[in-house]
Nucleic acid binder design. Structure first.
Length: 298
RNA sequence: GGAGGGGUAGCGAAGAGGCUAAACGCGGCAGACUGUAAAUCUGCUCCCCCUGGGUUCGGCGGUUCGAAACCGUCCCCCUCCA
């Protein structure tokens, strides 16, 4: 049986590099699990690994979408499952690398997307948060107790599932999928991580982040991709409402906040084997990870 | 030197005698998460032995049963006049 590896963790911990090293060590290929790296032309803000850094390791799912395309966890799940089958047939180890928690969980765990996708014309859409919550309270009091009334999307989804299946979500997120993945988490001391994040934003600026953001601003302002960190912060600057330094400050701040949310997710939502990386000894931790994986499958 | 305005929690900013450990925003911390997830949402955020206690609103001194709020004085900051 060919194992499935996954590298997760907050942004700027070096997931891409570790992914390549693992791919080299275990005859693997990379599958990206970053919600914005699927889009063509969005390279700088998404910290997409450039071709010449890929060390000839195939990277799947990068650049598969046009920025105008919509995408969802559901589609991602289908794509990745197909990809995993394909790699295994070729005898390759699938290595999922990314920071989009829900996407990873949907693939690595037994997520079943039942019920229809939300439609904008559904009668529910017109209800207020309070009305939706009340509805949920009537249909599924046990579910409503741990969902806040303001969490509109969750309530909506919950109601959809009840409508189409007559019951609540299956407790599927507790059951790891049959893939039995080995999930490796990369983390760093908070101050070190935050420092790296800020330094990386500076590097992105040198690489032309503002031009990329402006491209998104002019061409894709109303699409999904416009909400990526590294773009949306520049929009008010382009409008003349804030100064450039302020926009940059916000990009850094939002990146730090995002990293924190990622930590919370991976710590509490998934079963992860963590590696605390020392920013000065990145190679050493790469070896540790490789040894760990070898040991795990011995 | 003269005339005004102002100094409030990490920052911004309300409050103009008791309902104030002090609204609100930001930042920070923690958390949630099934079809936009780099999204969306929640809680906490002066200190402590925390269903209670202790110190706060530039400093000091007063008035008052009671002061961040009133008076005096001193120290800073800003604007205008000289």
């Amino acid at each position: 049986m060919i194992p499935i590896l996954s590298i997760v963790g907050p942004t700027a911990t070096g997931k891409s590099e570790v992914g390549i090293v693992l791919a080299q060590a275990f005859n693997g290929e990379i599958i990206s699990a970053d919600a914005f790296q699927f889009y063509r032309g969005l390279d700088i803000a998404t910290a997409k690994i450039p071709l010449d850094a890929q060390q000839s390791i195939p990277h799947h799912l990068l650049d598969i979408l046009d920025p105008n395309d919509d995408f969802s966890v559901y589609q991602f799940q289908k794509c990745v499952h197909a990809k995993i089958d394909e790699l295994r047939e070729r005898g390759k180890t699938p290595i999922l690398v990314g920071g989009s928690g829900l996407y990873l969980k949907a693939v690595l765990y037994d997520y079943r997307f039942i019920g229809p996708k939300r439609r904008d014309d559904h009668p529910y859409v017109r209800l207020s948060n309070e009305e939706l919550y009340e509805l949920l309270r009537q249909r599924a009091p046990e579910a409503s107790s741990d969902i806040h009334p303001n969490q509109r999307r969750r309530i909506l989804r919950c109601l959809e599932i009840i409508d189409s299946t007559g019951q609540l979500n299956p407790e599927s997120d507790l059951i790891p999928s049959e893939l039995h993945p080995l999930i490796i988490g990369l983390e760093m001391e908070r101050p070190v991580l935050y420092q790296r994040i800020e330094k990386r934003v500076d590097t992105m600026l040198d690489m032309g982040l503002i031009a990329e953001a402006h491209m998104v601003y002019t061409e894709y302002r109303h699409t999904q991709v416009a909400q990526a960190i590294g773009y949306k912060e520049f929009f008010p600057y382009f409008e003349g409402d804030i100064r450039l330094e302020e926009a940059i400050r916000l990009v850094k701040q939002h990146s730090r906040n995002y990293a924190k949310r990622q930590m919370t997710w991976f710590k509490n939502q998934m079963d992860v084997h963590w590696f605390l990386r020392d920013a000065d000894q990145l190679e050493r931790s790469q070896k540790q990870v490789i040894d760990f994986v070898k040991d795990f499958y011995k």
